[in-house]
């Protein structure tokens, strides 16, 4: 149980939000050019780290907006909240591990 600081509404209980999966996954520019394995990698494979996780949340019981979060998956402590696609702690490749 934790609070999330919505970029638009401020801190609210986590139960007001819907989890929207791993963040920073870019839809391939030209999906039909991918091999089946590359498509499966995009569609299904996940980092699922024990530690720092770049993820998306949506404030379903509030403003309805999507945004990015960097959160520790063991302590559940949130390190940063940012607008979609701009996680404060992402490295150059957009990957947070």
């Amino acid at each position: 149980m934790f609070q999330i600081d919505c970029p638009w509404c401020g801190p609210r209980d986590q139960s007001e939000f819907a989890y929207a999966g791993e963040g920073g996954i870019k839809r391939p520019e030209d999906p039909s050019a991918l091999t089946d394995a590359e498509w499966a990698d995009y569609l299904f494979m996940r980092q699922n780290p024990r530690g720092r996780h770049h993820e998306q949340w949506r404030h379903v019981h509030g403003c309805g907006q999507f945004f990015d979060v960097v959160r520790q998956t063991v302590t559940y402590r949130i390190e940063s909240v940012d607008l979609p696609g701009r996680p404060a702690l992402a490295n150059a490749s957009g990957e947070v591990r």
Partner: peptide, 16 residues
Amino acid sequence: SGVLADMAGFRLPVES
């Protein structure tokens, strides 16, 4: 499982 897969250099369609 994801932690061990990471040690072996591949990813899984798994979330914990």
